[in-house]
């Protein structure tokens, strides 16, 4: 593996709550190589979005990075000044948000919003920035880009707005793009277009992409490597084929079984759609020295409740945090 462009080591983010400090991201390490697409998967409230906001240093006020490092081509973002971060955001590292409906400023035309980023980071003049903005709109496949540049966000459809968001995020050709559930709010057909676009742009610009999603199907479609998060911790990490074929953590297995298969549901011997029983533990349970998935797990044993399982290497590049040595796929859902 080439040198990682972004590497996160032992990152811990603590939230101040009424019941004390809780680690919403608990000792998470991962890295991403240039041009790589990494998927981060998990249910709501597992710390996926918080991880991305921590990388951007855009966490809400009550959140604080207490330990660990976030290195972007060698520079530690945890200790970088706010002014330095302003220079990096949008320039070296960018983000696409979940809701294209609310992530664009409603009072400026989309062309102006793209141009603004170019003016901030590349010091282009008004006319140069506008020209470049139209080129960017074209590169995200918006028809009639010179006319659409004058449109306001409310005049565009959801898919178009997400394309604009991508154009803004990629305006300065950042090294890393974080896409936080970029297609959750969109139609399935539009989703496929957006994924295709992200793939193409990655090939053109060489940007690494971190795709955050709760949908294993999106990961299968997009990502090359997967990291599964549960309750603020990394529970499994590995190449996407490996994870889909041979998931080791019971939570990953559950997530994969949750994806409906059209063929199965229409075939005579249709199988029931699975669910993972229970819910993500409340935030006050985060950080306990135990396996936080234990209450929902059918392999649970004593040491799961007494000690936190650490990452263990099961195959080349395949890590999982589970005490159970042999988690047989079929046995889980027998």
């Amino acid at each position: 593996m080439p040198d990682p462009i972004l590497s996160i080591k032992n990152l811990t983010v603590v939230f101040k709550t009424r019941s004390g400090d809780v680690p919403v991201i608990d000792d998470v390490s991962f890295s991403i190589a240039p041009r790589e697409i990494l998927g981060i998967v998990g249910e709501s409230g597992c710390g996926k979005t918080m991880t991305s906001l921590a990388i951007m240093r855009l966490m809400p006020e009550q959140g604080k990075i207490t330990s660990g490092s976030i290195r972007l081509s060698g520079e530690d973002l945890v200790v970088a000044s706010e002014a330095r971060m302003c220079g990096l955001r949008g320039n070296e590292i960018s983000m696409v948000f979940q809701e294209p409906m609310t992530a664009l400023n409603p009072v400026f035309s989309v062309g102006e919003q793209i141009a603004e980023v170019l003016k901030t980071h590349q010091g282009l003049s008004n006319s140069e920035a506008r020209e470049h903005a139209i080129e960017l709109l074209e590169s995200v496949k918006i028809p009639l880009p010179s006319q659409r540049a004058n449109d306001y966000p409310h005049q565009l459809s959801g898919g178009m707005r997400q394309r604009v968001m991508i154009a803004i995020a990629l305006a300065c050709k950042p090294k890393v793009l974080i896409a936080d559930e970029p297609t959750t709010a969109l139609d399935v057909t539009v989703q496929a277009h957006i994924f295709e676009l992200l793939h193409e742009l990655r090939d053109q610009t060489g940007t690494s992409i971190i795709l955050i999603t709760h949908d294993m199907a999106s990961v299968a479609e997009m990502a090359e490597r997967v990291m599964v998060m549960y309750a603020g911790r990394k529970v499994e990490e590995g190449p996407v084929e490996e994870i889909l074929k041979n998931p080791l953590h019971p939570y990953t297995q559950g997530l994969i079984r949750c994806v409906p298969h059209l063929k199965e549901t229409i075939s005579p011997e249709r199988k029931d759609l699975h669910e993972i029983p229970g819910i993500v533990p409340p935030i006050s349970h985060f950080g306990r020295n135990e396996c936080l998935f234990a209450p929902r797990c059918c392999f649970v044993e004593d040491r799961c409740l007494n000690q936190r399982p650490l990452d263990s290497k099961r195959a080349a590049k395949h890590l999982t945090a589970c005490w159970q040595e042999n988690t047989n796929f079929e046995k889980v859902f027998a």
């Binding site: 855009l58 302003c86 955001r89 320039n91 983000m95 948000f97 664009l104 980023v117």
Partner: peptide, 21 residues
């Protein structure tokens, strides 16, 4: 609102957020 965070995520400074966003 999300568009304020989105503006921050592309490098907007406080003064820009106040005056223009």
């Amino acid at each position: 609102l999300e568009y304020v965070t989105a503006s921050r995520s592309v490098g907007a400074r406080d003064i820009y957020l106040i005056m223009r966003v």
